[in-house]
C-alpha cells in the first residue's frame, strides 16, 4: 500500500508508458522490415499526415459531422431507452410486448441493418442516425429496466407510507435508484454510437470521419487513413472520460464513488 501511495503522483504519467511502448514497437516493426511500410506506415509518417489533415481542416469538419450523428442517435436512443426500460419494469402488459422484441434484437449486430436503412432513407445522416439510435437504445433499455426493477421493496414501501403515489415515486425513487445502471448503459451506448456512426458512414455517407477513413483506405494512402483513425481514437477516448467524470459527479452518493484523488 505504501509503495502504491508513493507512486500515486506518477500515476497519470505511468499510464502513458504502455502507450509509448506500443508506438515504439510499431516503429520498430517498420524499421526491421517485418511488414511492408506501405501497409503499415511508421508512426512518424502518420503524425505528419495527422498534422496535415488537422491544418487542412478535414479532420475537424468530418469529426464534427460524425459527432453530430453519433450524439443525435445517442440522445434519441438514451431518451427512448430510459422510457422503455421504466415502462418494462413498471408495467407487466408493456413488458409482455416489449421483452420478446428486446430479447430478439439485443444481440443483433445493428450494422447488419444499415443496408436496410439505405434502402429506406438513402445515403446520409438519417441512415447513420437511425443505426446509431438502435444501437444505443438496447443497452440503455436493459440497464434501466434492471435498475428500476431491482429497487428495494423497503424503499418503495417507505415512500408509500409517506403518501407518495407510484407516479410521484417515478422520479424520486425508481429513476434515482436506477441512475447507476442508467449511467452504465449510457457508457456502453456511447461506445456503440461511435461504432455505428462511423461504420454506417463508411458505406452510406458522403461525409464524416468514417467516410474519410474509408476513402483513404480505398486510395491506398494508409498514412492518412491511420491519421484519421488516430483522431477517432482520441475523440472517443475523451468522450468516454468526460462521461465518466460526469457519472462520478452525479453518483457521489453511490457506493461506487471513490474520493476524487483515487479515481482512475
Amino acid at each position: 500500500m505504501r509503495r502504491l501511495a508513493r507512486l500515486a503522483p506518477l500515476a497519470p504519467l505511468a499510464r502513458i508508458v504502455p502507450l509509448l511502448l506500443f508506438v515504439a514497437a510499431w516503429h520498430l516493426v517498420g524499421v526491421a522490415g517485418l511488414v511492408d511500410p506501405a501497409f503499415l506506415p511508421p508512426p512518424g509518417r502518420v503524425a505528419v499526415a495527422l498534422v496535415d489533415l488537422l491544418r487542412g481542416g478535414q479532420i475537424g469538419d468530418n469529426i464534427a459531422v460524425t459527432l453530430l450523428r453519433a450524439f443525435t442517435g445517442l440522445a434519441l436512443g438514451a431518451t427512448a431507452g430510459v422510457w422503455i426500460g421504466v415502462m418494462m419494469a413498471r408495467s407487466e402488459v408493456f413488458d409482455a410486448y416489449a421483452a420478446p422484441l428486446v430479447g430478439a434484437t439485443y444481440s443483433l449486430p445493428k450494422s447488419a441493418l444499415v443496408p436496410l436503412f439505405i434502402l429506406w432513407f438513402g445515403i446520409g445522416s438519417t441512415t447513420a442516425i437511425c443505426a446509431t439510435f438502435l444501437a444505443c437504445l438496447l443497452p440503455v433499455v436493459v440497464n434501466t429496466h434492471h435498475g428500476v426493477a431491482t429497487t428495494p421493496k423497503v424503499l418503495v414501501w417507505s415512500a408509500q407510507a409517506m403518501g407518495f403515489s407510484d407516479r410521484e415515486m417515478l422520479g424520486r425513487v425508481f429513476l434515482m435508484h436506477a441512475l447507476p445502471d442508467i449511467m452504465t448503459g449510457l457508457r456502453i451506448a456511447l461506445g456503440f454510437s461511435f461504432v455505428l456512426a462511423i461504420s454506417s458512414e463508411m458505406i452510406a455517407a458522403n461525409s464524416g470521419i468514417g467516410k474519410l477513413i474509408f476513402m483513404y483506405g480505398e486510395n491506398g494512402t494508409y498514412d492518412y487513413m491511420f491519421a484519421a483513425i488516430t483522431s477517432v481514437v482520441a475523440v472517443a477516448f475523451s468522450a468516454d472520460r468526460a462521461l465518466l467524470a460526469v457519472t462520478h459527479r452525479i453518483l457521489r452518493w453511490h457506493d461506487s464513488a471513490v474520493p476524487a484523488a483515487d479515481a482512475a
Binding site: S158, M176, L179
Partner: peptide, 12 residues
C-alpha cells in the same frame, strides 16, 4: 409510519 431493520434510507 414504518422503520425497517435495514434502515431503507434513500442513498441518493
Amino acid at each position: 409510519g414504518i422503520v425497517f431493520q435495514d434502515y431503507a434510507l434513500f442513498p441518493w
